[in-house]
């Protein structure tokens, strides 16, 4: 298992290096002086051109491109991601500040959508061809067809503006101390985000389950005289699980993408709304860093999925 993980890492690391190189290239090519990414803007405004030049030298900005890239990577590995253009805040601080909100939202959505999506998809497959199956199929279709922000807007209109059951948006208001204070704020965005994802998981797990149920070993299991539930769940569902786990891993990019817009709709102070702010304000260092971070998250997720599938499916472990 360890060699398996190491082998996968050997694929992921070069990939990250290439992408970080491209991102760095992008950073160099976009407008804005590199010095301003690196030092406190207030200090910069008090410097004379000579001091500025000395600083450039000291910061290694006059070195060759590759050397600068190496320093940049080195700094990143030590937690220094540079500074945002607006206000000169270190990007690492922004991450620390915004990440918990995004993780909170994504984790809840992932949990909800997996549990609900898998169960509904399995039910749909087992009741194939019945009214239950077709209505679930149509609902699933609706789920992947309605723009998530539109769905979010409608839910704000109904639950926040008309019924006034839940707040319109935001996360931490002044005076909020306990989890209970915060809980109402996460309900709407988490529900909207997970309902949109549920549809996809449901459709996929239905297909995986149908595929698994059509295999020969199901007939073998039936010929052994096993009860129907055991054939469906112990044999059918267990085999369908592998592609579903893979899907959930691959949904992570979708989740990140979805949360960008949902965070904006619900004014959720996470990485996503920060990213949109950065794109609007042409804050390139921040845009690039968040993009790079999302790639890192995606690659890590696919690594975890690989390991998980290896645990679930004995065939993968060997190949």
């Amino acid at each position: 298992m360890l060699t398996f993980i190491i082998r996968r890492l050997l694929i992921v690391i070069p990939m990250l290096l290439v992408i970080s190189f491209l991102v760095y290239l992008g950073l160099e090519l976009t407008p804005g002086d590199a010095v301003s990414h690196m030092i406190d803007p207030e200090a910069a405004s008090q410097m004379s051109p000579a001091q500025f030049e000395a600083l450039r030298e000291a910061l290694g900005l006059n070195k060759s491109f590759l050397e600068r890239y190496a320093t940049w990577v080195y700094n990143m590995l030590h937690g220094d991601f540079g500074r945002s253009l607006s206000g000169g805040v270190p990007i690492s601080e922004i991450f620390l500040d915004r990440l918990p909100a995004t993780l909170e939202l994504s984790f809840l959505a992932l949990l909800f959508s997996t549990v609900i999506g898998c169960s509904l998809g399995t039910i749909s497959a087992l009741k194939r061809g019945t009214a239950t199956d077709s209505s679930l199929t149509v609902i699933g279709m609706l789920g992947v067809s309605i723009p998530e922000f539109f769905f979010g807007l409608v839910s704000i209109l109904i639950f926040a503006l008309h019924l006034r059951w839940l707040p319109v948006g935001g996360r931490l208001m002044p005076g909020y101390e306990t989890f209970l204070d915060r809980a109402p704020h996460i309900i709407l965005p988490a529900l909207v985000l997970s309902l949109m994802m549920t549809a996809g998981v449901m459709r996929y797990s239905r297909a995986a389950m149908l595929d698994s149920l059509s295999r020969e070993f199901i007939r073998t299991a039936r010929s052994k005289g096993l009860p129907e539930w055991r054939i469906n769940f112990v044999h059918g569902f267990r085999v369908a699980l592998t592609p579903v786990v893979v899907l959930i891993g691959f949904r992570l990019p979708t989740l990140i993408g979805g949360s960008v817009i949902i965070e904006e709709v619900f004014q959720w102070p996470g990485i996503g709304s920060e990213f949109i702010g950065a794109v609007r304000g042409a804050d390139y260092p921040l845009v690039m860093m968040i993009a790079l971070f999302s790639v890192f998250a995606v690659l890590m997720a696919s690594l975890i999925v690989d390991v998980l599938t290896a645990i679930i499916d004995p065939r993968v472990r060997l190949s």
Binding site: L252, P253, I276, A278, A282, Y284, A291
Partner: peptide
Amino acid sequence: LRVSEIFMSFPQIILVLLLVSI
């Protein structure tokens, strides 16, 4: 294959927004 892998390791909307900003 490698080029497509690079493109596909970005979440779609992040890559789109990144390119829009550039």
